[in-house]
């Protein structure tokens, strides 16, 4: 359970988040959705401790998100930021090995090697293990990054717009994989999504943000309606229902 209490965030006199209090449930996939500029990524960055807290409190299963809990948090909460690129030339395996850093501080023990192999296998990356990241396609590289967070072996996994730059096949494969992690391994997955249809299809819980406030939250089947799109997104799109799942007509 991730608890956010009275979180406000102001940049250059603009209020990005306004006194947000929300509880993200343990287990399953929780999707943060909302129009551009609603504060989804800011909320994500605060939970992921990428931005310093100005006001308010955030805790993950009672463990406060603060600089002094850095290492304990890195064993409880793994984050995958948007658009990661770094200057270092790494192979897939080397990247996934970094996922074990919170547990072994870089000195890999046999159980860490086992976990790395398990992560590579779970994501079908064994054949690519020794390839350099810059020789992979966008989808494969993305998978390698998710595999790193998987190797981190945390109960919570936070992803910021992971479907950006992925085609439909890669997007579906990634979401199915996250679904499997939630269902089979009991992980809690919090994901910032742009595409409401993906959120409706794969998430268990939706949190809708608008203008820096939590607008509403609940189950996707009840939430995704024409009214939501009109009120929050300001567009009068039609919503169809296919196999009990709402579907926004583009």
């Amino acid at each position: 359970m991730i608890t956010v209490e009275n979180l406000s965030y102001t940049v250059a006199n603009t209020c990005i988040l306004k006194d947000i209090s929300v509880t993200l449930p343990k287990g399953g996939i929780t999707a943060l959705i909302g129009p551009n500029g609603a504060g989804k990524s800011s909320l994500f960055s605060h939970i992921a401790r990428l931005l310093p807290l100005q006001t308010g409190r955030i805790s993950v299963e009672g463990l406060e998100v603060s600089p002094s809990n850095r290492q304990a948090l890195s064993r409880k909460l793994a984050i995958l930021p948007q658009e990661v690129h770094f200057a270092t030339r790494l192979t897939v395996k080397e990247l996934v090995q970094f996922g074990r850093y919170p547990h072994c501080q870089g000195r890999l023990r046999s159980e860490d090697h086992a976990m790395v192999t398990a992560a590579l296998e779970a994501f079908g990356l064994m054949s690519l293990a020794d390839r350099f990241l810059d020789t992979l396609s966008g989808g494969q590289r993305h998978k390698a990054h998710v595999a790193m967070t998987y190797a981190q072996d945390t109960d919570y996994l936070l992803l910021d717009e992971p479907l950006n730059n992925l085609d439909i096949a890669a997007s579906r494969a990634l979401m199915a994989l996250l679904r499997r992690l939630a269902d089979e391994e009991g992980k809690t997955i919090v994901i910032v999504l742009h595409d409401i249809n993906f959120a409706a299809q794969y998430a268990d819980h939706l949190v809708v943000l608008k203008d820096g406030c939590i607008e509403r939250e609940g189950k996707p089947a009840e939430m995704v309606t024409g009214a939501l799109l009109a009120d929050v997104f300001g567009t009068d799109a039609q919503v169809a229902v296919v196999d009990d799942t709402p579907f926004v007509m583009p």
Binding site: R49, L50, I79, V84, F86, T88, Q152
Partner: peptide
Amino acid sequence: GLGFEIATNLGE
């Protein structure tokens, strides 16, 4: 070397 976000994620 992996950058601010990933290093923070890994507890640095």
